[in-house]
Design a protein around this nucleic acid. Structure first.
Length: 433
RNA sequence: GUGGGUGUAGCUCAGCUGGUAGAGCACCGGCUUGUGGUGCCGGUGGUCGCGGGUUCAAGUCCCGUCACUCACCCCA
């Protein structure tokens, strides 16, 4: 008996066409910027996954059935692509050329309770740049720029790339005399859900005085679409070397990522990112009208994610949640099959003629199928229409656009569909209804 | 993982205080040996998410479970 599994979505062909085009676009954009591709295995040693980040990660352990209950699981499915990538870099450090720029699109697994836009099995698209010992800062700018361009070409609600820098927060807190700046960040990070007064209370509970808490909240209120956040932060009157460094960095990233049509870029000092390995630039991304989904694309700079005896490998990267990104789409394409043309069949005796026409169209790169059955021609047309195939070919030499009803004489060695019909079109919700 | 809501034909839904299931759309066939989307006539289709319980009798009450969904948590 077939049963659905919560959080493990499976798409219909028409939906998959939409996802596939999104993936194609991402790959094209990443490769346009020279990123190389790798794929890492689905499993990692359990202790590698648990060592980074928190211990309560909902990871799926994997073990051989024959291992029995006494042997603990040693492997687990990866829950992101960054940790496996760090491991991969260490393992292949001798064979890679640095700085190493790679894109990676794979499934990941998390045991969280599913909801709209939250899955247990989903697809992430990552770009990261890693170097040995020293990674120039301009790569922070590049990674933001590439992802902005990738998002720009997609048929989604307007994305806002929210960028911050942990050096600003940490430096500001240190300048304020806060003893444990890293403990403040997870609290401030909740600002989008918890009211400011409550955050203030929580900060005071952490041992800060009311004045410090006020200034911390004042910093977090600063959101700008250009570099005007710099004087606004400076006006708060806190000074620290790290703060100044962070302001300079963030200004460069915001400037560098701005100007991509269809993408809003902000310096947003609310963004702190819970904890983890981030050391500088941090990113989150929200979709207009779909803010409740949370961030669809986040990442940042991590100076010490990977380390071996000799070297440290600093990196900067962003992960795009493809599965989550698809939620606002109607997830519907103009057709459920790749076919541009359905070649009609007059009778089973002449099927070979239809096959010949199809072969000639395919030889020129036009996806073509032949009618399954020599039905009444009206039924063959309806069958094409049902699946959204735009053209029906009547052998030997006539082709009909069944959307308009226009029919013309044509030579299968010459005829070309308009470029817009060559692949299925993604329909938005409005177009679909 | 914690707490709440929902679950009836492919789709959208109706089924009052318990008495063995309906509509519209879709789909199939005919009017139309053949180039369709309108119209008319006819037809197929439901273990009422699944399992258990209460009852003479449950879609309708109770419990469990699964799925979807909302908040929290976490994050893509």
């Amino acid at each position: 008996m077939a049963t659905k599994l919560s959080g493990f979505p499976e798409l219909l062909p028409r939906e998959r066409i939409v996802e596939q085009q999104v993936l194609d676009h991402l790959r094209r954009t990443f490769e346009l910027h020279g990123f190389a591709n790798i794929e890492t295995r689905a499993v990692e040693p359990l202790d590698v996954l648990l060592r980074k980040g928190e211990i309560d990660k909902e990871v799926y352990a994997v073990k051989r059935l024959a291992a029995g209950d006494s042997e603990p699981a040693e492997l687990a499915l990866h829950y992101d692509l960054t940790v496996p990538f760090a491991r991969y870099v260490l393992e292949n450090a001798g064979k890679l050329e640095f700085p190493f720029r790679r894109w990676q699109i794979q499934k990941v697994w998390r045991g969280e309770r599913p909801q709209q836009g939250r899955f247990r099995e989903f697809t992430q698209a990552d770009i990261d740049i890693v170097a040995r010992d020293m990674l120039p800062f301009h790569f922070d700018v590049e990674v933001a720029r590439v992802m902005a361009e990738a998002l720009a070409g997609l048929p989604i609600p307007t994305p806002t790339l929210q960028i911050s820098n942990r050096k600003i927060l940490e430096g500001f807190y240190l300048g304020l005399g806060v003893a444990e700046p890293l403990a403040v960040m997870p609290v401030v990070d909740k600002l989008d859900k918890v009211p400011a007064e409550r955050i203030h209370e929580l900060l005071v509970e952490q041992g800060l005085d009311a004045g410090q808490a006020d200034r911390i909240l004042a910093l977090a209120e600063i959101v700008t679409t250009d570099t005007s956040f710099v004087p606004r932060v400076e006006a708060l009157g806190v000074e620290h070397e790290l703060l100044a460094e962070g302001l300079s960095e963030l200004a460069q990233v915001v400037e560098g990522a701005s100007g991509v049509e269809g993408v809003v870029v902000t310096a947003d000092l609310r963004i702190a990112r819970g904890l983890d390995y981030y050391t500088g630039t941090v990113f989150e991304t929200r979709l207009e009208g779909w803010e409740h989904l949370g961030s669809i694309c986040s990442g940042g700079r991590y100076d010490k994610l990977a380390q071996d005896r000799r070297s440290t490998y600093p990196g900067v990267g962003i992960s795009l949640g493809v599965s989550r990104l698809l939620v606002p789409l109607a997830l519907t394409a103009s057709r459920s099959v790749p076919s541009v043309v359905l070649v009609a069949v007059d009778s089973e005796e002449t099927r070979a003629d239809s096959n010949a026409v199809a072969g000639r169209l395919r030889a020129r790169g036009i996806p073509t199928e032949v009618a399954a059955k020599a039905d009444r021609l009206g039924k063959q047309i309806q069958n094409a229409e049902k699946r959204g195939i735009p053209y029906v070919w009547f052998p030997p030499a006539a082709v009909k656009d069944i959307r308009t009803g226009d029919q013309v004489d044509a030579d299968p060695d010459q005829w070309d569909p308009p470029a817009a019909d060559l692949i299925p079109n993604i329909l938005t919700k409005e177009q679909n209804t």
